[in-house]
Design a protein around this nucleic acid. Structure first.
Lengths: 346, 346
DNA sequence: ATGAAAGCGCTAACAA
DNA sequence: TTGTTAGCGCTTTCAT
């Protein structure tokens, strides 16, 4: 029951706990024979150090927290996969938290992480400013923070790994325009920075193309499939029906796709659709989904590296802002002929 | 930097640390005024208890570990989502580990969890018996274990939440046979229990239908898309080409789908395909995927509940074996006409 | 109703 | 080269 401790090993061997500790931490000031004896007994008993006790002494848990808003979106899972690969090879644990796009839940999760004394937090924030106070307190308490994907909480100083969201919106929208669509609508996200930037990109693309931006073609939707479905349904019933839609992300785009089908219309013939985020298997859908992609696994890796390097260096060097460039992926949903597609995709 | 501690609060108020502790733990033997004073200061300073110190004293971390073999398979992510919902509402943290189907990595992850003194581990095991020793030591050390999805390590006593894998294989295969296919192949997984059971179900369905089981139509593939692709490619080049395939899971089935397409053939006309696990968006694929489904979120929830109930009860009651029943989901890839589909699909 | 003391398992000065 | 002592922040007897 009671697992073996350093004390047990020390007693067995008639040495002090300190000696055992030093051996296990590879300190130089230990005799070869003692070291060997300790190591032997350690192996024999299958001793595993108690990380909790270690953490208490060192005031370092070697544990990171990750808070993401949607576990069912493959985008975030890929980010997590990237993170996990780095953290685990460097001996860090990863506490997983899901805010479900709910600032209240996010707050609870952040608190849980704070109590557990994580060394760092990776956050894709759900709420605009609701939890800024907590984040301030966290960083003030010495917790390293890196924000990913969502560029909110501008007053918080921390590393950030994001993409160029305005460019995301611009790429998708101008592509739709280039396909000859003139009535391009936008299913927007909630009022948080990266969603607004995608809307900005949408607007800019229209303006650049000399098209008018119509307020009633920008519909506040959300990041989930159900949000996209609802928004598209509304768009289809508007007096002037759009012939193309840029959805704030791929789940919303898929919701839109379904809404179009349920209305008895076709994608892309009646409505062309583009999303963002390059959801898993988007290339295999009944109508493959045109989207904007950026390196998701790398995003996770970069976030982990920024965090761990800062922790290892104990360094308070300048906060970094890593921008992962987006790239258009043209597929069927935006209404390109097979020939054209081959040119621009992949 | 140094976050506020109970000591700090005690000094501020001129009481003892014990008193503060008692207030925070809602002990009855504290005067109302003292209690109020302490609580006020706690709120004022935004005191957060140090869970690491607490864990060391109580020898309980209120943290669970989850080890899964494939983070990019939506099946496991849904299981995790179910787990997370339960653990977090009950105040537990969740340490996420990804074994990548690699027993060595799994071993390292389990060790990390052991060192971190998790109260319990949820495991979807990658290796057949490689890590049984470690699991024995873990449970002997008082760590609660619940195995999910994969029913390996038969000598380990623990709760299990699985599905009826033989029935999974039987449902999928007999459905393919019912569609009139006579040359039904199987893309199998590695030699671990639940994969073997699916193969058993495949064989039984054939035998029940009076069909011969051909060894060269059972191909050792694997759980990943690439495994399915390779296996299908081999099947397509065998001297007698099968007209249907049951793949051990949906990622493998999708790999098979791609292989068929890349060979210039059609699904389901030339080869019908069925998978298992009901991958996200399988209903929206170019050819929607016939599969076998079972409650994944519930699986995660049940696992968490079994674990936490056992922990809370500190109970050594009989180990439970929860079997989540599988159900066939008929879609286009198995070659049903639209009319029939409506009847049998969920 | 309150507090002193011991201890959870470990590391880190500082002596010896 | 080794050991003694103190302490990380908390809970828990057991006195008072």
């Amino acid at each position: 029951m009671a697992s073996t401790t350093m004390k047990r090993i020390a007693e067995d061997l008639g040495v002090s706990v300190t000696t055992v500790s030093k051996v296990l931490n590879n300190r130089a000031d230990i005799g070869e024979t003692t070291r060997a004896r300790v190591l032997a007994r350690v192996a024999e008993l299958g001793y595993q150090p108690n990380a909790v006790a270690r953490s208490l002494t060192l005031r370092r848990t070697r544990t990171l927290g990750i808070v993401i808003p949607d576990l069912m979106h493959s985008f975030f899972v890929e980010v997590i996969a990237g993170l996990e690969a780095v953290t685990h090879t460097r001996g860090y644990g990863l506490l997983l938290c899901n805010s479900d796009e709910d600032p209240h839940k996010e707050r609870a999760e952040l608190q849980l992480l704070a109590q557990r004394q994580v060394d760092g937090v990776v956050l894709a924030s759900a709420g605009a400013s609701a939890n800024s106070d907590l984040l301030h307190r966290l960083t003030a308490a010495g917790v390293c923070l890196v924000m990913i994907d969502r560029d909110d909480h501008p007053d918080i100083l921390c590393d950030r790994v994001i993409t160029d969201d305005e460019e995301v919106g611009r790429l998708a929208t101008s592509h739709l325009v280039a396909q000859g669509r003139r009535a391009v609508a936008h299913i927007a996200g909630p009022s948080i920075v990266h969603a607004r930037r995608r809307a900005d990109g949408y607007r800019r693309a229209l303006v650049d193309a000399g098209l008018r931006v119509r307020a009633d073609w920008i519909i506040r939707g959300g990041f989930r499939e159900s949000d996209g479905y609802r928004a598209m349904t509304r768009l289809l019933s508007s007096k002037k029906r759009p012939d193309a839609v840029f959805a704030v992300n791929d789940p919303a785009a898929i919701g839109a796709l379904k809404a179009v089908w349920d209305a008895g219309l076709r994608v892309p013939e009646d409505v062309a659709i583009a999303g963002a985020g390059d959801i898993a298997h988007g290339d295999l859908l009944r109508v493959s989904l045109t989207t904007v992609t950026w390196a998701r696994r790398d995003l996770g890796k970069r976030a982990a590296e920024l965090l761990l390097d800062r922790l290892d260096a104990d360094g308070a060097n300048r906060h970094r802002r890593v921008v992962i460039p987006p790239r258009l992926v043209v597929r069927a949903s935006s209404g390109v002929s097979a020939g054209t597609e081959a040119l621009s995709s992949g």
